[in-house]
């Protein structure tokens, strides 16, 4: 291999390495700046706190989640709430909560803009909000 060939090869390698680093950095930044992911985390956190608040209420209640959840599916079980995006059942955002022993939480709402949490007796459910 002569000097020029080696030098050109190293130059190409350097350029490729720099481009790769820039692309990786941009890709990571794009992934982290994704608003949907943040909204998903916030919604999971909010709904988990709403469940705890409903347990702390003496009677029955119906509460509307104040943000649009049409991009998400919300599933509620007795131990946790999980929120995942429309077509991605993996990568769901889960938040745990602890209910009193004879309480239950149920329901799944798929891509509905208005989502409500309802407490009737000892059951908390997630459902599409009733039409006004």
């Amino acid at each position: 291999m002569n000097t020029k060939a080696a030098s050109i090869l190293l130059w190409i390698f350097e350029v490729i390495a720099v481009i790769a680093v820039i692309l990786i950095a941009l890709s990571i930044a794009k992934q982290f700046s994704d608003e949907t992911a943040l909204r998903k985390i916030n919604a999971a956190e909010d709904i988990s706190m709403m469940v705890n608040t409903l347990v702390g209420l003496p009677g029955d209640a119906l509460v509307e989640y104040p943000r649009d959840l049409s991009k998400f599916t919300v599933a509620l079980t007795t131990q946790y709430v999980v929120i995942f995006e429309k077509d991605a059942k993996v990568d769901g955002e889960t938040r745990n909560f602890i209910l009193p022993s004879d309480y239950g939480a149920v329901g799944i709402v798929k891509q509905k803009g208005k989502v409500c949490l309802q407490k009737i007796g000892k059951t908390i459910s997630v459902e599409e909000c009733p039409k006004p």
Partner: peptide, 19 residues
């Protein structure tokens, strides 16, 4: 979310829930 808020929502059950 500050832990004080989360714990507040949980603790409400002790004084508000008849169960």
């Amino acid at each position: 979310v500050p832990n004080e808020i989360k714990s507040e929502f949980i603790a409400l059950r002790f004084v508000n829930n008849p169960d």
